[in-house]
Amino acid sequence: MWLLVSKIIRQSFIDGPGSRMVVFLQGCNLRCIYCHNPETRGLCSACGKCLTSCPAGALGRQELSIVWRAEMCRGCECCLGVCPESADPRAQWLPAGEIYRRFAADAAFLDGITLSGGEASRQSREWLPLAGWLHNDGKTLFVDSNGMMTAASRQEVLTAADGVLLDFKALDRRVHRALTGVDNLPVLEFMAAAAAADKLYELRTVIVPGYTDAPDSIAAMARHIACLPGRPFWRLIAFRRHGVRGDGTGLPEPGGERMEELAAVAAAVLGRGRIIVR
């Protein structure tokens, strides 16, 4: 089972419970206007446009694919800007066993792995064995998802993962469409299913002025969350332009006061202990 991996962070404190390794999987089914890591969205078509963009000569062609030579890479990320697919030539195919091997070397310091992306559920069949290996070690597997997935993936995520970190981009369908291009009904269905399975650990909302920063809509989302079983956390994330491409670069960033104000609105419904502001 091979996974297309965008990058691996050996440790994070903000991707689920405890200390976790985070594996970012390449490829996403949404094109959100505020996406802060757009290079994880697409899959390489081997068009070769990136080859000449690399000042270090770290990119080359091997048969039908693009190869990235890590030892030569200077990390300038010039290649990302020219990619018409929003892909990343640095993405690597790794066997699930290799990911587990890297985890095991640091296991003393980690509670588990969080699969993020991109959209992690798109490779659920491939990462499924990882869950069993982690559970054998008393560790956990969490999945960070946008909630848009096939019925088969939903089944796999909700049975294999110990918890889900789910994007709750907007409750209002028009706002969700404006941000993502698609309706939020599948997300709300997945949210309900995950909560019913006692797997909904955290919901995440990016606060974008003009889209998701109205106190009324935050209150409505809070009430929606309050009706879910399992008391998930709700993380309010301030939109930041860093990394954003296309239309999103013109969006304003919310101030700290605005974030605190919205956190207070959310806390009034859910209690302060369940609200995280970043």
């Binding site: 404190f13 903000i14 419970p17 405890g18 200390s19 310091f109 980690l110 509670d111």
Partner: peptide
């Protein structure tokens, strides 16, 4: 924000 992680 994550004392459990720090303890780990």
């Amino acid at each position: 924000s994550n004392p459990r992680g720090l303890k780990r």
